[in-house]
Design a protein around this nucleic acid. Structure first.
Lengths: 137, 137
DNA sequence: CTCTCTGCAAAACATTTGCAGTCGG
DNA sequence: CCGACTGCAAATGTTTTGCAGAGAG
C-alpha cells in the first residue's frame, strides 16, 4: 500500500531540470531528446518511468496532444486548472475557468452520473504565431 | 480537390450497422471484434480506414479515451456538443454545455490567442455502475 | 548492505501503409 | 472496364516490461 521511496538520482534531477526550464508541455520523447542534446546519458524508458512517477506524485500536469500522446509540464498551482495551448509553437498558459468544477459536476448529476471528472483542453494560435501566420493557414 | 467517390460495400455497411446498433463510443478494435463475432469477414485495416473516412465525412464523433485511443460514434446532431462517458461501462450521453463555445473563445481572446477550439470530455460513473460499485472504488 | 533505479532491447499496442487481387457502378 | 475497396502483413511510433548491474541511503 505505501508508495516506495523515491531516490534522488542524476537522471531524475536532469528530467526535473528540463521541465523547469520551460513552460511548455513536453512529451517523454521530447524530454529525452533535450537531455541527450545536453549530453545527459539517460534511457528513454527511464524518462517514461520518471515522468509517470512525477505525474502520479502530483508534481506534473498531463495533457494529451492532438495525436493522443502524453505531454507533461510542472504544476504551477495545486488547484485544478486547464490549459490554453498554442497549436503551432506549443507554448501554453494556465487558465482558470471559474465555476467549471461545480458546473461539470452538476451536469453529471443531471444524468445520474457520479464521480464526474473532466478534461478540458483549449487549442489556439498564440499572438506571435497569429501575426506570423497572417491571414492564410 | 474533390473527394473520391465512396462505394457501398458489404464491409462498409457492416461497420455502419455496428455503430448504429449502439449509442456508445467504440474504438476501431472494438468495432472489428464485434464484426468478427457477428461472422463478418473484415480486416482490421479496413475498419480503421472506414472509420477514418466516416469521421472525415462528418458522420462520426471522435473522442480520445483515457489511454489516448480514438473512439467513434454516430453523430446524433450536427451541432457541436460534448460527451459524458461512463468510465466503467463505456456508455455515453451527449451533453449540451450552453454558452461554452462563446465562453471558450472569449477566454482565448483574453490571452491573445486566435482560432481557439476546445476539447471537453466528461468522465464519470453512470447510475447502474454506481450502484454496482458500491462505496468502494 | 539493501532495495530502488537505470539502461537496453524486446514486447505490447494502436494505427498506417504497400500491394495485388476483387468487385461496385 | 476503371479504379475504389479489401485483406494481409510488414512498417511505424509510442509506451511498457524483463532483467542484470549500479548507486543512493
Amino acid at each position: 500500500m505505501s508508495e516506495p521511496r523515491r531516490r534522488t538520482t542524476r537522471q531524475r534531477l536532469a528530467v526535473d531540470a528540463v521541465l523547469r526550464s520551460t513552460s511548455d508541455f513536453l512529451s517523454a520523447q521530447q524530454v529525452h531528446l533535450r537531455l541527450r542534446e545536453a549530453g545527459e546519458g539517460i534511457g528513454l524508458a527511464t524518462v517514461y518511468r520518471t515522468l509517470g512517477q512525477m505525474f502520479e506524485d502530483g508534481r506534473l500536469d498531463m495533457i494529451r496532444g492532438i495525436d493522443g500522446e502524453a505531454k507533461y509540464r510542472f504544476c504551477t498551482t495545486d488547484r485544478h486548472h486547464h490549459h490554453l495551448v498554442c497549436r503551432e509553437c506549443g507554448s501554453a498558459v494556465e487558465v482558470d475557468l471559474p465555476g467549471t468544477e461545480t458546473w461539470m459536476s452538476s451536469i453529471g448529476g443531471d444524468y445520474g452520473y457520479t464521480d464526474v471528472s473532466h478534461t478540458i483542453e483549449l487549442f489556439g494560435r498564440c499572438g506571435p504565431c497569429t501575426t506570423r501566420a497572417g491571414g492564410d493557414g
